[in-house]
Amino acid sequence: MKDSHYNNKLKNFASELRNDSTDGEIILWKEALRARKMYGYQFNRQFAIDNYIVDFVCRKLRLIIEVDGYSHQFKTEKDKLRDNKLEQLGYQVLRIDEYDIKKDLNNVIRFIETIVAELEEKYNLSSNNLER
């Protein structure tokens, strides 16, 4: 999928953020999203879309996963505006609490798998037929 919303101007900042990931982001990346572990879908970390850098994105599914740590308790309105903009661009935004990743990773992974299956159906995709 050609991603017309990629913002090359934020590439260096996104790279810096990859090197400064939170514990929850690192766990989710290593255990569930890297190396096509999630049903064969490619996820990117700290990816620039429009004027935002998202924690994780699967461009084929148009799925964004945001890991919310403690500071997000004070950013609910800002996060809501950001999510609305990303949804207007055609993405589904999934917010996951960092605490849940650290304490209940298996259920977090099952939740993501459910969303991936729903999006496969929505876009008429099959993880068995993905380009590798």
Score class of each variant (00 low, 15 high):
residue 21 S to E: 11
residue 91 Y to C: 05
residue 67 V to A: 02
residue 110 R to H: 11
residue 100 D to M: 08
residue 74 F to M: 13
residue 6 Y to M: 07
residue 11 K to R: 09
residue 71 S to H: 13
residue 121 E to C: 11
residue 131 E to L: 14
residue 130 L to N: 02
residue 59 R to T: 12
residue 34 R to I: 08
residue 86 L to T: 04
residue 31 E to G: 07
residue 89 L to D: 04
residue 7 N to I: 02
residue 93 V to A: 03
residue 86 L to P: 04
residue 49 I to Y: 00
residue 87 E to L: 07
residue 94 L to R: 05
residue 55 D to Y: 00
residue 78 K to S: 12
residue 22 T to K: 03
residue 67 V to M: 02
residue 83 D to L: 00
residue 103 K to Q: 15
residue 91 Y to M: 04
residue 131 E to G: 10
residue 15 S to H: 11
residue 104 D to M: 06
residue 4 S to L: 13
residue 104 D to T: 06
residue 97 D to M: 11
residue 60 K to I: 06
residue 107 N to G: 09
residue 101 I to C: 02
residue 60 K to Y: 06
residue 106 N to R: 12
residue 87 E to S: 10
residue 35 A to W: 09
residue 18 R to V: 05
residue 48 A to F: 02
residue 34 R to Y: 08
residue 103 K to S: 15
residue 31 E to T: 08
residue 126 S to I: 03
residue 2 K to V: 11
residue 62 R to S: 07
residue 131 E to A: 12
residue 122 K to I: 06
residue 18 R to H: 07
residue 21 S to N: 10
residue 41 Y to L: 06
residue 80 K to Y: 12
residue 74 F to N: 15
residue 44 N to G: 11
residue 28 L to R: 04
residue 25 E to P: 05
residue 95 R to E: 03
residue 4 S to K: 15
residue 8 N to I: 12
residue 1 M to N: 10
residue 12 N to P: 11
residue 23 D to S: 15
residue 117 A to P: 06
residue 71 S to D: 14
residue 76 T to I: 15
residue 2 K to P: 07
residue 32 A to F: 07
residue 81 L to K: 12
residue 127 S to Y: 08
residue 75 K to M: 09
residue 54 V to Y: 00
residue 15 S to M: 10
residue 50 D to I: 08
residue 96 I to F: 02
residue 35 A to F: 09
residue 49 I to P: 00
residue 130 L to Y: 01
residue 29 W to S: 01
residue 65 I to S: 06
residue 46 Q to T: 00
